[in-house]
């Protein structure tokens, strides 16, 4: 029986893990390789690097970073952010990523998902969807949540899967960073219509929120970031709570 997964997300810029502080710029919080390794040791099931580099110079260090990480990390590594072409995906995989998440580029060119799945396999293509609640539905936004589209998140998730995505990373823009819990209605609505794993993202403030995302939200995996980096809770504490709730998770051995 498949276990539910806990995925740790690290924001990466110019080869370092960074963290935004109330729009007051970014603070350096550490070396991505060391942090990724530490989370593996604590029992994380996967690591995701989200590249938030603004310039080509910063971005250029990403592939070297991915390679150095892959040589020391023995759990799956997903890379997302700024992936635009089939060649970008190929480069990420050769550098050492196991999966690549595609967001704005898939909206601009949905055929990209199909091309990547045919060339590299559906299991490494993650459709990343940022959604905001509007009038009882969820509108898809691109470009880091700044640019509205005409797409409905539930219908778009279904289309991404039909076009070849092997997983859906679903982020609630409303809840992102709010620590008030995942948008369970959104998560459930998407999980009910797609046959691939759904990763709940945006809003985890404690271990109970993770549990609710997996049970009430119906997600296969939960993405967490800030609450671990800030020491609000730990991978071990979250997994203990999940286990107590009868959820099947991997033990750390």
């Amino acid at each position: 029986m498949l276990t539910r997964r806990l995925i740790v997300c690290l924001d990466v810029k110019g080869g370092r893990v960074v963290k935004g502080v109330q729009f007051e710029g970014l603070r350096d919080v550490g070396d991505p390789v060391e942090l990724a390794r530490r989370y593996e040791e604590e029992g994380a099931d996967e690591v995701t690097f989200l590249d938030i580099s603004a310039s080509a110079e910063e971005r250029g260090t990403l592939w070297d970073l991915v390679q150095r990480t892959a040589e020391r990390l023995f759990i799956p590594l997903t890379v997302g952010g700024g992936v635009r072409t089939v060649d970008d995906v190929g480069r990420a995989l050769r550098a050492g990523a196991d999966k690549v998440s595609i967001n704005s580029a898939a909206v601009a060119n949905p055929a990209l998902l199909t091309a990547c799945a045919e060339r590299f396999g559906a299991q490494c293509v993650v459709a990343s969807i940022d959604a905001k609640r509007e009038d009882g539905r969820w509108r898809v936004y691109t470009h880091g949540g700044k640019k509205p589209t005409e797409l409905d998140a539930v219908a778009w998730a279904r289309e991404c899967v039909a076009r070849g995505a092997g997983e859906v990373l679903l982020t609630s823009i409303d809840r992102d960073g709010a620590r008030s819990g995942y948008d369970l209605d959104l998560t459930r609505a998407v999980a009910d219509v797609v046959d691939v794993p759904v990763i709940a993202s945006g809003g985890a403030g404690n271990a109970e929120h993770v549990r609710d995302g997996l049970t009430k939200g119906g997600a296969d995996a939960a993405l967490v970031a800030g609450i671990l980096h800030d020491g609000v809770t730990t991978v071990g504490a979250i997994k203990s709570l999940l286990r107590e709730g009868g959820i099947h998770v991997r033990s750390r051995t």
Binding site: L2, T3, A122, G166, V196, A221
Partner: peptide, 9 residues
Amino acid sequence: RRVPEIGWN
């Protein structure tokens, strides 16, 4: 139903 299988089993 869920293919690919992705995760720990």
